[in-house]
Design a protein around this nucleic acid. Structure first.
Lengths: 204, 204
DNA sequence: AAAATACTTGACTGATTAGTCTATATAGAC
DNA sequence: GTCTATATAGACTAATCAGTCAAGTATTTT
């Protein structure tokens, strides 16, 4: 096995960076190559199209985040607190990124997914897959909260999907208005969606 | 005032159609012209750039919908019922559109806004303006519901923004997954977000 | 009918696009 | 050292992009 290269990773990193900050459509293969320090030939050696690279970039992003998600949604954390920690984590990360690029970027999966969903079946399928994996964290926390009598949510899947959609709507709004403050109160909205009984609301 | 043309309207109609079904980035000026039956010269006679046309198209879309919104959110309708009627209306409209183009398209303001927000200040400003106008419908319904004791929502603006964001997250998810069914249960989510007291839940 | 305004035409430009292709360089196996 | 798979280099194509422009047509005012 001669010669190993980190170019594949550099390309997916560059692609996600640019597409998240701007959009799929305005991110050219040339720009991705330039940021990754690659030439055209290398790009098409690793990926057979921009579409395929995008799917790979989203999967890579998921893999980068998975360990954090596992920690945030660890069963050792009280279920409702998992959400609070997660929302804080995402907000902090977006705020930090805003310092670097000037914008609140929202969720790349949603932005890119919404942009290409009617046109690129491959990327859409990838988005769907990642979406489902992420929802599982929500679902399991909801099931635990229900079992502990903190909320009433017999249909944990539906509840998880509803909360996930609400959260992503808020992230999209934060991106459009470039305002991180819109994320500050989401914990309260989440409590409403979850139907948290007042007595059990976590303090933070 | 010699000669009047409907070309401006045809161009904004074509632009919104294409951008809604696909995206801002993949909708070329040439394609807009072709669908509108216009030549390049006419396009740039009416609009000085693709960006300016997009802003005009979004404003035109708002104007087309305004009368419907006024009717749906008429003060003569019980406040919580206004939401139900609105959600039904949007869902029906999207389902109908799906028959024509094969896809659930979600909200064009959100899709286009999210796509261009970090790059096109003019379009973003337009999106913000329309967003605020739409939220006013929610806000007034929430205030009325609060006054009638149907819900507890002292901060009607915050509640309206939260519900609006949740709804648009659900629309975005429906677009990405091309599934109108995701919109079916939003009424229930809305009740949770609004904090509707169980006794007052509208039946439909 | 002439003038003025409102609109249309379509060829054109120069930049950028995704993607291809052939040649070459580099590293580990033997 | 040489063989071989892995990776890089970068010129190239053909299509498409947003936008320009000068010349023309249609309609109303005077």
């Amino acid at each position: 096995m001669p010669r190993v290269s980190d170019m594949k990773k550099r390309l997916t990193d560059a692609a996600l960076d640019l597409m998240w900050a701007n959009s799929y459509g305005t991110t050219s293969v040339d720009a991705i190559c330039e940021r990754a320090g690659a030439k055209k030939g290398s790009f098409y050696y690793f990926f057979k199209s921009k579409s395929e690279l995008t799917a790979a970039a989203l999967e890579a992003e998921w893999n980068k985040n998975k360990a954090n998600m596992d920690a945030l949604f660890s069963p050792t954390v009280p279920p409702l607190e998992r959400f609070d920690r997660y929302f804080d984590y995402v907000r902090d990360r977006l705020a930090e990124r805003q310092k670097a690029c000037g914008s609140i970027l929202g969720c790349p999966i949603l932005s890119i997914g919404s942009e290409v969903s009617t046109q690129d079946h491959g990327v859409r399928a990838t988005v769907d897959r990642i979406w489902d994996r992420k929802i599982k964290y929500f679902e399991s926390a909801i099931r635990d909260a229900h079992a502990q009598g903190l909320i009433v949510a017999p249909d944990s899947d539906a509840k998880a999907r509803a909360l996930f959609a609400c959260y992503h709507g808020t992230l999209a709004q934060a991106r459009i208005q470039n305002d991180v403050e819109l994320l500050r109160d989401f914990k309260l909205v989440a409590r409403d969606v979850l139907g948290v009984k007042h007595a059990y609301a976590t303090s933070s």
